[in-house]
Structure formats: C-alpha cells, structure tokens
C-alpha cells in the first residue's frame, strides 16, 4: 500500500460507488479523489444528485444496497498509525473504526437519535461499546460531553428524551454522541441545513471551537456556499458524481476555474451586485436547465448542456480530465484557461 503524506488522515482515490437499478446503473460517485489533512476542514459542495452524500456514506461504509463501492480506495490512517483501505476493510474491522475513529452527524438529528432512549443512555452506550469502562464512568463522560457541546444543565438533560429537546439541542446531542470517543475524523452531512440561521451560527461556532480543542479533521458536506465560506479550509465541488473543481477556500471564492462553480456563485442573490438603482428589482443569472440524472449522463462533460462556455469538444467522449489549472487548484474543464 502506498504511503500517505504524514499529515493526511483520509485519502479518497478514484472512488466509484454505483447503484444498480435493474438494467440502469446510477453512477452516483464516479472517480472521486481528494484528501483530508489533520485538523483540516474539507467541504464537499454540490446540489442534489451530485454524489456528495453517497461519498460520505461510502467512507462510513453505510451504503444501503444496491449501492456498492465498485472501485477505488479510501485510505485512512488509524489512530495507532496503521493504514487501512476502508473500501476493502472487513465489516468486523470496520466496526472498530466507525463511530470510534470516524464519526458522522446527519442533517436531521431527530431521525438519527433513538426516540426510545434518553440522550444520556445513547451517549453512554457509544462509550461502553468502544471503550473498557463501567456504566458509572460512561455516564460521567456522557455528562462531560453534553457540557462540551454547551448544553445547559447537562446533569438533568442526560435523562431527557430526544423529543424533549429543540432542533438545535438535538444537533448538539448528535455532536456530543459523535465526539464521545474522540474521533480523528468527523463527517458532517448538512448538519445545519434543517436549523434556523441563528442556531446554525451557534453550531458552526461550536464545530470550529471543538475542532481547535480536539484537533480533529472535518469532512463537511453541504449545498450552502455561504456556510462553506465560513467553515472550510479546502473546498471540493461535485457535480453529477464527479469532482469538477477543488481549491483552498479563499482562492475558490476569488477565482472559479469551472463554469459550474462560477454559475453557482452567481445564482446566490447578492444585493450589492444584483440590485440596480433604487426601485430596480434584482436580476439573477441562473444556471439554465436542471441537474442531470446520474443514470443517463450525456457524453463528454456532464455540465455541457447547461454551460455558457460550451464548445464542440465538450460534448464528446472522453470528458475533460481533472487537471491543475493553477497550483493547488483543480478544474475539470477543457476551457479552464478561458475562464
């Protein structure tokens, strides 16, 4: 197995996750590569059908059939320094990694928490499952976890059921649960999408603070470029199962090297840019058309049909490769130089 660079925690290489649906195949993730370094937050951005969530579920090995990893590697550096390929890890070995070393939080905390158990029991169970401690010690640790995520009156809240808490509180409990075994990688799949903006700001602050405190890496999956700007160090933009652009956050927002990223940013209403003189209404520049269906992708570049920069070569196979448009800035576009 090749070596990982010293500070890399996770390296996804040419990952292919497909769903066989009768005679059709949904190539939800089709040749995705990126890596996450220690203490770094990598954001995977995309719209529905981009494959961002399937990528994170592949890393957690939580794919529901007929979803299957059919190719590529997911190299992960374990806490003891050894390296494993998650794509090939036997389920039993995966169980020691999942939840303990790589934890995940989801968009809707209500569906990820068990409604029949108190939050204290759920956090304790996680600790008891992975670590050689007794019930009392696990409960004490559960209380410390609730304090860590700033839930007031933690001792009393341990005995609450999920339905007794607000959406923001439940997401805090999910984070406490995820961090109970001090994972080295946290996968956060749209963790603030269901929350109000004032609560979203609290959760983003909390994640940033905990990351500094614990030193974990975060893979942050979202569709919201505003949230990306606030939390990410590195950004991976996905479209129709592929990475179309990747760059450090400031660079990506300064200069987009893929028409899709550029279009996505132009769609977000910005009053200072889109609203003209007094009384003029805003005029947005939408990307025409719809996100393509991953069971029936066109030849060539998947974005060609919606792209304002399209030329003949774009609609022919093979599609454009992901190349370095600049140092540390990747683009999957034949015309990245024209951008």
């Amino acid at each position: 197995m090749t070596e990982l660079a010293a500070d890399v925690v996770l390296q996804v290489e040419d990952l292919r996750t497909h769903f066989e649906l009768g005679r059709r195949v949904a190539k939800s993730v089709d040749g995705v590569s990126f890596s996450v370094r220690r203490g770094e937050t990598v954001a995977v951005v995309g719209e529905s059908g981009s494959g961002k969530s399937v990528t994170s579920l592949s890393i957690m090995r939580l794919l529901a059939p007929p979803g299957r990893i059919i190719g590529g590697r997911i190299l992960y550096r374990r806490r003891d320094g050894s390296m494993v390929d998650i794509a090939e890890l036997p389920e039993k070995a995966m169980r020691a990694v999942r939840g303990r070393e790589i934890a995940m939080i989801f968009q809707e905390p209500m569906t990820s928490l068990n409604p029949l158990f108190t939050v204290g029991d759920q956090i304790s169970e996680m600790i008891l499952l992975h670590e050689p401690v007794g019930r009392a010690a696990a409960r004490a640790r559960a209380k410390r976890m609730l304090e860590l995520v700033e839930i007031p009156a933690a001792e009393r809240r341990l005995d609450d059921y999920p339905h007794q808490m607000s959406g923001g509180m439940r997401q805090r409990v999910m984070i406490a649960l995820a961090l109970a075994c001090t994972p080295s990688l946290l996968i956060a799949d749209e963790p603030t999408t269901a929350l109000d903006v004032t609560i979203q700001a609290q959760i983003l602050d909390l994640l940033r603070r905990l990351q500094a405190q614990i030193g974990m890496s975060i893979l942050f999956v979202t569709h919201n470029l505003g949230v990306v700007a606030e939390i990410a160090h590195e950004v991976v933009v996905m479209y129709a199962g592929r990475v179309v652009e990747q760059a450090p956050v400031t660079r990506l927002f300064e200069r987009q090297k893929h028409p899709y990223t550029r279009g996505l940013l132009a769609c977000i209403p910005d009053a200072s840019r889109d609203r003209g003189a007094a009384g003029e209404r805003l005029r947005l520049n939408p990307i025409p058309g719809n996100v393509p269906n991953v069971t029936a992708l066109p030849a060539g570049c998947s974005f060609a049909a919606r792209c304002p920069y399209v030329v003949d070569v774009c609609t022919k196979d093979p599609g454009p490769p992901l190349v370095a448009a600049e140092v540390a800035h990747l683009s999957r576009c034949w015309r990245h130089e024209a951008l």
């Binding site: 607000s166 923001g168 509180m169 109000d196 903006v197 004032t198 609560i199 979203q200 700001a201 609290q202 602050d205 919201n224 470029l225 505003g226 949230v227 990306v228 700007a229 606030e230 990410a232 956050v249 400031t250 927002f253 940013l265 977000i268 910005d270």
Partner: peptide, 24 residues
C-alpha cells in the same frame, strides 16, 4: 443578529457577528 449570522459566500468577509445564545 439575524443579518449578522446569515452566511455570506465570501471567506474574507470578517463581520462582527452577533451569535444569539439559546433557543427560541
């Protein structure tokens, strides 16, 4: 508070954020 916590797609925007405590 609402305006200051609404995320803007600009990583350089250093705004004075008023993060409200607690829930509705």
């Amino acid at each position: 508070a609402l305006l200051s916590t609404s995320p803007v797609p600009d990583p350089r925007a250093r705004r004075e954020r008023v993060v409200l405590r607690g829930d509705i």
